[in-house]
């Protein structure tokens, strides 16, 4: 009993934190989402409850923004994984251990600058009259001024740039944990380097890969700074319309309904991704389970 009490005592700060800053605010948002906006100078009221705000939020005009957001979220996370995995693997496995700290520090360098400032930097680089556009035109790569700013492509570039470190760091930890002796053992047992990578390193690094994907995907779906700065009218995301409901329209009920829908979209898409991942890896898991048992 006392042990249990001590254990609970240790977890208490975390529980209180979660309750106060997570569970309750989300509860308030859900509660507001069933209300309505009574007048211009009040933000919401809950004396009549309904699902009307959800109907509004799912109308064709806003639904397109949800689709757009999902596209940016999935494509951005996939790109971060494709770019981040080799980098993390190289730092963890291939580069000299004495230099690892330096390379990790270099991955972190962008975080020293404010998120917004970094993103506005891209706005200047990508502008049709910016230096990149002039350079590419001079080299004959593109015929006219660069037209990427204020498109979904620019948002994708921005989110990959902004969230890449969040992918590299957990992947590095994961690859680092698959220690050298394990890989050597795999080689001793006759596996080539590709086989070792796919049958030993990747399966053991799986928790890190999942952590990286979640760390990038979830904040990316709610991001509105990158889309505001780089997306213009074409690259808008749900975060922006939620912000404008709270800040400009002052319609907390509709903004809350949109926020709840965004949470549901994220949860549902993660569920779908997990299911796909589980289905896809069935044959692989079968084959290496056999291999490991054979090795034993």
């Amino acid at each position: 009993m006392r042990k249990l009490r001590i254990r609970f005592g240790l977890a208490l700060p975390a529980w209180v934190w979660l309750l106060v800053f997570f569970v309750v605010p989300i509860g308030v948002v859900v509660w507001y989402s069933f209300g309505y906006k009574p007048s211009i100078f009040s933000t919401n009221a809950n004396d009549k409850l309904s699902f009307d705000r959800y109907v509004e939020a799912l109308s064709p005009t806003f639904f397109a923004t949800f689709q757009n957001t999902l596209w940016v979220g999935i494509a951005g996370t996939a790109l971060c994984l494709i770019i981040g995995a080799p980098v993390a693997y190289w730092i963890a496995v291939k580069c000299a251990p004495s230099r690892r700290g330096m390379f990790l520090a270099l991955v972190m360098v962008p975080f020293w600058t404010n998120f917004l400032v970094r993103t506005i930097g891209w706005q200047i680089i990508l502008a049709p009259e910016g230096w990149l556009s002039h350079a590419l035109q001079f080299l004959g790569v593109i015929p006219g001024p660069l037209g990427i700013l204020n498109t979904r492509g620019a948002v994708l570039l921005g989110v990959v740039y902004n969230y890449l470190p969040l992918m590299i760091l957990p992947l590095f930890v994961a690859f680092d944990r698959v220690s050298g002796p394990l890989r050597e053992a795999s080689k001793d047992l006759g596996a080539g380097s590709w086989q070792t990578f796919f049958r030993v390193t990747i399966p053991l690094a799986q928790p890190g890969i999942i952590a990286g994907v979640l760390l990038v995907y979830i904040p990316l779906m709610g991001d509105y700074i990158t889309a505001t700065v780089l997306g213009g009218a074409k690259g808008n995301m749900v975060g922006q319309i939620v912000a404008s409901q709270f800040q400009t329209a002052q319609n907390w009920a509709l903004g809350s309904a949109m926020a709840v829908l965004l949470i549901l979209t994220i949860a549902l898409s993660i569920g779908v991704m997990a299911a796909i991942g589980w289905l896809v890896t069935i044959p692989i898991r079968r084959s290496y389970r056999l291999t490991l048992e054979d090795a034993r």
């Binding site: 211009i40 005009t61 806003f62 397109a64 009218a233 319309i241 404008s244 409901q245 329209a249």
Partner: peptide, 18 residues
């Protein structure tokens, strides 16, 4: 019509991104 105007503005922004 203030709120209606804000709603039109929101819808226009959403439509521009569609």
């Amino acid at each position: 019509a203030q709120e209606r105007i804000v709603a039109i503005w929101n819808a226009t922004k959403a439509a521009a991104g569609a």
